[in-house]
């Protein structure tokens, strides 16, 4: 898969389980939020993760930067295996990977001024030489995300959602990370503001040579910003591929259903909607075999028994589905 490309982050078989009380007294069941996910992110790309709510996409993002402790699996960031790091060992790593959170109202401390919020990462990692340097850098960051100097002394409640998200982005940028995990950064915003924030993120990506992992449930947002896209269902990827190939030629029945649900801004256009039946099964007790088989329109017998492996269908397009088992010989990587 590597193709000699520069791999910034590789995640192998990541599992994040939450223990819950079992049905019988004394037993423990696990909610399998992320269940053995592997993928790689190349330096300089935008890797989009889409899926319906509850599929584990946010948990995956949080697991990478250890906000959730992964139950198992390996995370290699920039050649450094960080999977067994404790909080103290993670501290220098956090300069490389930062997060932008979904809810800009909750992610900023209401009792701190914008200046203090953006200065905090600089103070934690001792990145500023003195007070003057700190001030210059904070104001520079504010300007970079499209805010003004005089905003520095204000408090989060005085800003709109879009402005707050800009503050959140400035805070993430302060440590000059190489990877930013954006956990639904625009889903709490108006559509017009979404575009502004997405454009800002694109522009900052070029300026600071950033790599993004962009988690979202909105397919068109992901299409707009991503280079490669992974589609998640119930804790696993079902399809990973570059944007063009995945959007023009979706292979997995789930991806097909998902894409067919995107509204087309043309009232006369006819489209074939694949309507899925039923709800997403509980991650507490996921179906055996392929997790999608309970809702899959093309379900076969083998799907109910055996979980599909990863099949390569084209150079940069992988699918986890038995339908592609024999179509491409030796495509199994």
């Amino acid at each position: 898969m590597a193709n000699g490309a520069d791999i910034l982050l590789s995640v192998e078989d990541m599992k994040i389980y939450y223990p819950v009380a079992g049905k019988r007294m004394g037993t423990v069941d696990y909610v399998k939020a992320v269940d053995g996910v592997s993928f790689e992110v190349r330096r300089g790309e935008v890797f989009g993760i889409v899926g319906e709510s509850g599929c584990g996409k946010s948990t995956l993002g949080r697991g990478i930067c250890k906000l959730e402790r992964p139950t198992g699996g390996k995370v290699v960031l920039d050649g450094e295996d960080i999977s067994s790091y404790n909080d103290k060992q993670m501290r220098p790593v956090r300069k490389k990977v930062q997060m932008v959170f979904q809810d800009p109202y909750a992610s900023l401390n209401p009792r701190m001024s914008v200046f203090d919020i953006i200065a905090e990462p600089l103070a934690i990692h001792k990145l500023a030489k003195d007070k003057g340097d700190m001030e210059a850098r904070v104001l520079d960051l504010l300007r970079k995300v499209g805010l003004d100097d005089y905003h520095a002394n204000r408090y989060p409640h005085e800003f709109s959602g879009g402005q707050r998200q800009r503050i959140g982005i400035a805070r993430a940028l302060a440590v000059q990370p190489s990877l930013i995990i954006a956990d639904e950064p625009v889903s709490a915003l108006d559509v017009s503001i979404q575009a502004q924030v997405l454009n800002l993120m694109n522009q900052l990506k070029k300026e600071f040579h950033l790599t993004y992992i962009f988690v979202a449930h909105d397919l068109s947002v992901v299409e707009h910003i991503s280079d490669r896209v992974g589609v998640m269902y119930l804790g696993n990827f079902v399809e990973v591929g570059n944007k063009e190939s995945l959007y023009t030629n979706p292979l997995h029945p789930y991806t097909q259903a998902l894409l067919s649900a995107v509204p087309i801004p043309d009232p006369t256009a006819k489209k074939d909607r694949v309507i899925l039946e039923g709800n997403i099964p509980s991650p507490l007790n996921p179906p055996a075999g392929c997790k999608f088989h309970t809702r899959c329109p093309k379900c076969m017998d083998c799907c109910k028994v055996e979980a599909p492996q990863r099949y390569q269908v084209s150079e940069d397009h992988y699918v986890y589905c038995h339908l592609y088992d024999d179509k491409i010989k030796g495509g199994n990587s």
Binding site: L67, M90, R94, F101, A106, L108, P110, E120, H125
Partner: peptide, 10 residues
């Protein structure tokens, strides 16, 4: 979330 964010900052 803001405490998580602070944790994420290190």
């Amino acid at each position: 979330v803001f405490v998580q964010a602070a944790k994420n900052l290190g």
